[in-house]
């Protein structure tokens, strides 16, 4: 039987953590783009678009991420579409992040005083101009802390993709455990790596929030 040093274990885990980071980045960026579109639908003047966005957000917030991953992976598989694990994982996480980001950002848009809409309207601006030049710049400032905070949820969410067979940090933990029979050491290290990824982000989100409360001006 081969002996594994702690260093061997850690090296393998860190190697796999690249995929956690990459999947998190893709999910967060993709979720941001889709989320922005859902946000625009959510605050649009068209009732149909608003309904759609509300339905979308409720659907993805109201079901477990794990079920969404299963549906993306096995569901499409049943339909005869062969979906690789990375694609199922990426798309499910993007759609899931989009729902949460859209809802976070909607709160930020609604936090902008109603008088800002009226003043910009009375100056002749159209709806997109109001959003672009008046509303979103103000919403953006308050949106940064909760958005950074949500990125932590995305990183933790990627752990679930191990279940559909995507080899990221958690899955690597299982594989390494099966080879070494040292579950406590392995999962301890896995947890530490997650912590090393998440903790700076949540600290950063908190400090951003504090700054926002101190200086309520963004220039």
């Amino acid at each position: 039987m081969i002996e594994f040093s702690t260093w061997d274990i850690l090296r393998n885990l860190i190697f796999a953590a690249r995929w956690t980071v990459l999947l998190s980045l893709v999910s967060f960026a993709g979720g941001g783009v889709v989320g922005l579109m859902i946000l625009f639908a959510r605050i649009s003047k068209s009732k149909a678009l608003r309904r759609f966005a509300i339905g979308y957000i409720e659907l993805f917030q109201g079901t477990p991420l794990l079920m969404q991953l299963f549906l993306a992976f096995f569901g499409l598989g049943l339909l005869g579409v062969d979906v690789p694990a990375w694609l199922a994982a990426g798309s499910a996480l993007i759609l899931w992040s989009a729902a949460f980001l859209a809802e976070i950002w909607r709160g930020c848009v609604e936090a902008v005083a109603k008088g800002q809409w009226e003043a910009s309207a009375s100056l002749g601006m159209g709806r997109l101009q109001q959003l672009r030049y008046v509303i979103l710049p103000q919403a953006l400032r308050v949106a940064v802390p909760p958005t950074v905070g949500f990125s932590v949820q995305v990183i933790k969410g990627t752990a679930l993709t191990s279940i559909i067979g995507f080899t990221e940090l958690s899955k690597a933990g299982t594989i390494v455990t099966n080879a070494t029979f040292q579950p406590f050491t392995v999962y301890g290290l896995v947890a530490l790596i997650y912590f090393a990824l998440c903790w700076p982000l949540s600290r950063y989100a908190h400090s951003l929030e504090r700054k926002l409360h101190v200086a309520h001006r963004g220039h």
């Binding site: 008088g115 910009s120 009375s122 100056l123 002749g124 400032r141 001006r217 220039h219």
Partner: peptide, 29 residues
Amino acid sequence: RLKVGMIFQQFNLFPHLSAGRNVMLSQMV
């Protein structure tokens, strides 16, 4: 609205823009 301007009780200046930019924005946009 290009013909009729409105001033509000609560001023409603755009807080993220300087006074000058407040006055410039709608002209440019």
